[in-house]
Design a protein around this nucleic acid. Sequence first.
DNA 1: CAACACCTTCCCATCATTGGAAGGTCAAGT
DNA 2: ACTTGACCTTCCAATGATGGGAAGGTGTTG
Lengths: 136, 136
Amino acid sequence: MQIGAAAEASGVSAKMIRHYESIGLIANGARRDNGYRDYDQRDVHELRFIRSARDLGFSLEEIRALLDLWRNKARSSRDVHSLAARHLHQIETKITELQAMAQTLRQLLQACHSDERPECPILDGLGGTAIRGVHC
Amino acid sequence: MQIGAAAEASGVSAKMIRHYESIGLIANGARRDNGYRDYDQRDVHELRFIRSARDLGFSLEEIRALLDLWRNKARSSRDVHSLAARHLHQIETKITELQAMAQTLRQLLQACHSDERPECPILDGLGGTAIRGVHC
DNA sequence: CAACACCTTCCCATCATTGGAAGGTCAAGT
DNA sequence: ACTTGACCTTCCAATGATGGGAAGGTGTTG
């Protein structure tokens, strides 16, 4: 299996597969005589693992830890749980921040009459002290 | 007013003020004889505008457009409204994505017994086909 | 005159990903 | 045999917003 097929099968682009290899996230795998990388089903499985974790917003460093746990038969599920819980918390924090931004924006948008006149509470809000305390 | 004082007064770091100037977001302002940048209240006002907009998640390119509207007395509030509404929509989309991630993570966390045993539905979920369709 | 707090420019790092250049390899069609 | 096209290789650079730090100039105070 060449890198293109592995990319297709895993949902990870060939570019990124090479990159993950270069940063040591995945092992320097086998090469054929012509220098082409060679992949099997296990490699694809690992790449799909990475892809799923990325889809869930895990950083590459978090994924590095997850992969260590995945490969380690003697792991404790508590370690995995802890890592995932920490990540969930980060996401929830981010959601809260974004919701605060959205709420402020909605208030500004509602105050704006949105016509051809230049008066604009949105710009006034940004320029004035009205938004003080948002600090995201 | 030197850059440090302007940074303090606006909440924008000196580093970023120089950067904003270098990318043309703010004008190349006055310099004193010694080469130091010199700021007045209007500059600080503008920097605070930028800071507020960043706090609301606007990108620097969006802020560039907002600043153009801010400076343009002949603007229409509709243009500002449209720009802000588009940005709000982006934020809401992002929130939805993060909520989907959080929901999936919560399900995985709930399925995980979190003890010293190696069996772990979280890793199984990431490795298997269980998360297919998340695709954020 | 020394110490210190400021300022200047310039380069580099982050994070995940993409794009492209320059070149090697291989199979199919003419 | 030769060309075309689809692969593959490595290396370099860009994205966006920000921070860190080096090397050096300026200015005030003790």
